[in-house]
Nucleic acid binder design. Structure first.
Length: 437
RNA sequence: GGGUCGGUGCCCGAGUGGCCAAAGGGAGCGGACUGUAAAUCCGCCGGUUACGCCUACGUAGGUUCGAAUCCUACCCGGCCCA
């Protein structure tokens, strides 16, 4: 039962309107009732993530930010790690059967995502403190008979078969296993359990979760006769209609530094299209909706300054990786993209050594006649001496931001901090030379 | 198994004895322009101890002053017949 105490406290009555203005609302259950409920007092709301990978990506970020928006508005967020559901695999949006995760993989994935679930929300010191849950807590101990009685009895197979995710798989050649078919029951059961034990009245998720979430709403109503709420946001799609979440180089935009460095994360957002800026600022930042049009207009007045991208990239990087990492990502970016190399700290060069193709070269080759060609080959900047000669002849090589002449040489005075030197081939390719003794 | 056509540089594709490191196109790269965008234009696009030499036209031999081009065998692919 939802406890009456949870309805005390003040909430920001503008939350739902803000989400709508940000285009973060795809579907909701009974919109009028939801709006009233959200204004009436704190609501406990949950968002679940299955540990199918060792980290989270941009798609999950919207979920976490949404929980944070709810918390900032005075509501109580429950981030849920799907330790149980993750074992089964959600068929939504999948064309083929998932591989079941073994215990080790599951534990490893959980270890990666739990810190992220904790990172964005306040867990202490506030009335509406967040609480981290894992659905194994109430799923593992449930017997098959209990499950069939308490969950299965309330749901018809007709209803389950009608879900898009199931229909698609039943039409396909490989079918769908009973295990994955059951996934939606587990998720519905989660919602019902949280409703009964945590006073959780609302679930949020991506629009691909609508089927599973609404089944949970139905289960709550059938089991308790009470009303639960659901809200989904549109999937984050790029202009070309594919799911968002890859860098320009094709890497997944993970939220942990081990898998995608803060510098690359920052760059991923620096490189978004002008056309996408407004949408991304609305979805992924806490900039007030009223300010965003101004920000975008300001950006479009001088698009080459990339003000919009800078704001998006720095706010998101700071949120995910913290202020220090953001500042070094910004400094590293200024080195790589045209800024001067002279004022750069040693620590930034050291960081760049992890981001750029870096060659460790022998100091003894410095100051020798025509050493540039062979150094470019040794440093893997070019594949052959012929190519080196060609590049130099075509004015394609610059050292520390300065174009070099074909017969130029690399000398000790070109090193920064007595060991680093930045080599650019053309405009896009940047290499770091590190001279050791 | 028989016949037939074919295997060329990152990809497609011309080239049937010297003028072939091999046309043309695509991709890629550099330059100009530019916003860490797109388009456009110009240039480059086997290696090297650079007007020479080496390596390369399925593989291995052979003919010839000279072979991607002719001959032989083999390997692989398409098509037709059994």
């Amino acid at each position: 039962m939802a406890t009456t105490e949870s309805k005390t406290g003040t909430v920001d009555p503008g939350l739902l309107d803000d989400l709508v203005a940000r285009n973060l609302v795809q579907d909701t259950t009974d919109r009028g009732a939801l709006a009233e409920r959200l204004k009436a007092g704190p609501v406990t709301v949950y968002y679940g993530v299955d540990p199918t990978a060792p980290s989270l990506h941009v798609g999950n970020l919207i979920g976490l930010l949404t929980l944070k928006r709810f918390q900032m508005a005075g509501h109580r967020p429950l981030p849920l790690a799907g330790g149980a559901t993750g074992m089964i695999g959600d068929p939504s949006g999948r064309s083929s059967e998932r591989n079941l995760l073994d215990d080790d993989a599951l534990a490893g994935n959980l270890a990666g995502i739990v810190p992220l679930l904790q990172q964005f929300l306040d867990f202490d010191g506030v009335d509406n403190a967040a609480k981290l849950l894992d659905n194994r807590a109430w799923t593992v101990s449930t017997s098959v008979l209990e499950f069939l009685r308490d969950v299965g009895k309330h749901v018809t197979v007709n209803q389950m078969v009608a879900k898009e995710s199931v229909k698609a798989r039943m039409a396909g050649e490989d079918g769908i296993s009973f295990t994955e078919f059951s996934y939606m029951l587990l998720q519905a059961n989660d919602f019902a359990w949280l409703f009964e034990n945590e006073g959780c009245e609302m679930q949020v998720g991506g629009s691909d979760q609508w089927g599973n979430i609404s089944l949970g709403v139905d289960l709550v109503r059938r089991r308790t006769g009470e009303k639960a709420f659901a809200l989904t946001w549109p999937l984050l799609l790029q202009k070309d209609g594919t799911k968002y979440g890859k860098t320009a180089g094709g890497e997944t935009i993970w939220l942990t530094a081990d898998l995608l460095s803060p510098y690359r994360f920052y760059q991923a957002w620096m490189q978004v299209d002008d056309d996408e800026l407004r949408k991304l600022l609305l979805w992924l930042t806490f900039q007030p909706v009223g300010d965003i049009d101004g920000i975008v207009a300001d950006h479009m007045a001088a698009p080459h300054e990339r003000k919009g991208q800078r704001l998006l990239a720095s706010e998101l990087t700071e949120l995910v990786h913290g202020l220090d990492a953001t500042n070094s990502a910004i400094e590293a970016s200024s080195v790589v993209f045209g800024g001067s190399v002279d004022e750069i700290q040693q620590s930034t060069f050291e960081m760049l050594a992890n981001e750029l193709p870096t060659a460790t070269l022998d100091r003894s080759q410095l100051d020798q006649q025509n050493n540039l060609g062979s150094l470019l080959v040794k440093g893997d900047v070019v594949a052959s001496k012929s190519e080196a000669a060609r590049m130099l002849k075509q004015n394609g090589i610059s050292i520390n931001g300065q174009k070099v002449a074909p017969d130029g040489l690399l000398s000790r005075s070109d090193l920064r901090h007595d060991r680093f030197c930045l080599v650019r081939k053309g405009k896009k390719q940047v290499y770091l030379f590190h001279f050791a003794d």
